[in-house]
Amino acid sequence: MSLFDTLFTLEAVFVLSGLALAAIAALSFVDRANPSRFGTGAFWLLLAITFALGSVLPSWATGALVLAMVALDGFGLVRHGDYGEPTHAERAASATRLGNRILLPVLTIPVLTYGASLALAPLELDPNRVVYASLGYASIVAAVVALLVTRSRPRVLLDEGRRLADAVGAIVILPQLLAALGAVFRAAGVGDVIAKGVAAIVPTDSLFLVVVVCCTGIAAFTFILGNSFATFPLMMAGVGVPMLVVPFGADPALVGLMVLTAASCGTLCTPMAANFNIVPAALFEMRSPYGVIRFQAPFAAAMLVAHILMLWAFIAFGR
């Protein structure tokens, strides 16, 4: 049990990620085809250090490493290299040769992650630990499966990891940076200022107008802060409960859920929610980092209208 308690932890998985990132850094340093191999290598090495040692380094040191990574990116020193990619024909030939076996590694990850979550459910561990430790080890099993299926050398595996890491590039740290910005915003009390502003413009006599301002307000508020989990409690305390639940006798479960998903309409439109909107654009190698947001904007607008109409109708006719 003690071995399990040591290895099946977020900490262990962070250290493994740090090692993978360090390997990517080492390969970057020796990639002469990369016009900025030292800058690129340094970026991945610094990220490797924050991953492996993030829990033992003093916070100011991690902060300094983060500033250094941002400086490397700011000066354009994180670039693409050469990954010895096969030609179109070679790839198609191996696809034919391997058939459905080539799907195996990728399917391993969700199947093992879910399987482990189910198997460990009776232990009642912290759910984040179960999901992400499972995900980490499932990724490693998938890498081994990929090596066996393709009969490649480990060097090729790491080069391919580096190819995808470079495709995402320095954007990879943006979600963590934005979470850190959220922490500074919280410490400075930015959310309270905005919530007070929204609460001040709400008319209180018309149910429909309160619903409009509440849904639009949380969407706009979430657009600015990028995280509905940060805006939701402020909006419920400022508007949802005192102006919908109390005066109109609305079902608090209804108001709570609809305000939360109305916030998601803002999430769909904001670069601040980088892990949902900006990282995928980089991962899919799109030309514009805002391509996913542009596609989602009309959907988000329609969903916001749907939220307003549903919340209003369920309160007005549900009494």
């Binding site: 977020l10 998985v13 493994l16 990620s17 993978a20 924050t50 991953f51 993030g54 829990s55 380094l57 003093p58 916070s59 100011w60 040191a61 991690t62 902060g63 490493l65 983060v66 990619e85 096969p86 790839r91 198609a92 030939a93 191996s94 696809a95 391997l98 080539i102 799907l103 590694p105 990728v106 391993t108 990850i109 992400y132 980490g136 499932a138 990724s139 490693i140 998938a142 890498a143 990929a146 090596l147 299926v149 393709t150 490649s152 090729v156 595996l157 080069d159 391919e160 990891g161 995808l164 890491a165 990879v172 740290i173 979600p175 963590q176 979470a179 850190a180 959220g182 922490a183 500074v184």
Partner: peptide
Amino acid sequence: DTLGRSFANQRIITLFVLSLPAIGLSERFG
């Protein structure tokens, strides 16, 4: 230090890097 603490606390968002080698190698072979 607030920046560093929060960055370290949010490492799970970036844990997906560990799955990139398996995906990349599979892509290389079609």
